[in-house]
Amino acid sequence: MRYFAVFVLVLLASVPYTLGPGVEQSLVTLFSLVAMATWWNLLAGFAGLTSFGQQAYLGVGAYGLYVLALAGVDPFAAIPLAAALAGVVALPVSVAVLRLSGGQFAVATWVLAEIFRLAVTLSPGGDTGVSLPGISGYMPLLRQALVYWCALGLAAGSVLAVWLLARGRYGLAARAVSADPDAAAASGVRVARIRRVAYCLAAAGAGAVGALLFTHTLYVQPGSIFNVQYSVLMMFMVLTGGLGTVEGPVAGALIFFVLQQALSAHGPWYLVLLGAVGVAVTLFAPRGLWGHLGRPLFPIAHLRET
């Protein structure tokens, strides 16, 4: 299995030499979806927190990258820095939002994303977007390949990181918190800490995706990057794929990607379908596609009660 995963990765990494920019363009989108879904799943699937505000950290990542690039840091080298920035910003925020849970947590994180958006629009230029500085020196083909490799690395790294977290002690504790916070606390799990770690890591992950998207689109606008639509996508992918599994978000991202490619010509109908499928899956198949059909490729099962 692991050899197969490595083989697939090598194959994907060679795409810029074999298939070229047209394919890269689509795959960058797919990889950023995989990373987004994977980090949202760490929050919702493992720590039991549904956030509708992860776009806040997409924005922090993107605008963090802008500030760093403006200061002369190479945009690609600045992606990890922007991610770290998002994680750091999330730490004080978590004190406020983690007082809540369920629907209240969801809406509070959404409000938070609005606060971040409005704060960004206070800078000169307001709601008008900014262009990524420091990119014009790159040859177009090389820039695209770099974006592609960063996206691939981010997606693979995110899945690996969440898998390692989920199969370790942290994962066990997180799932206990997710299943029943009070019981977990009674058995000595430090609930607040578990949730805080998940929140900050998920924020850093979203920050990395935001920064990556910026290197891809080259232009970022507060209204776009802080849009709640990103949370819609994350939720849909994780739900359909399988909440609380490592493979689920990847499967969900693939499903969404295929739907988007196949149906986007039909305009908003595919989003209607998306919402309806999300509702149906939550009500009738809460373990998602992978939970019902798939075999765990990245087993965390030795820690999961079956």
Partner: peptide, 12 residues
């Protein structure tokens, strides 16, 4: 970087 960039495929 220069090494990686050689052989990159143009759009098909």
């Amino acid at each position: 970087v220069a090494g990686c960039s050689s052989g990159l495929r143009e759009s098909s």
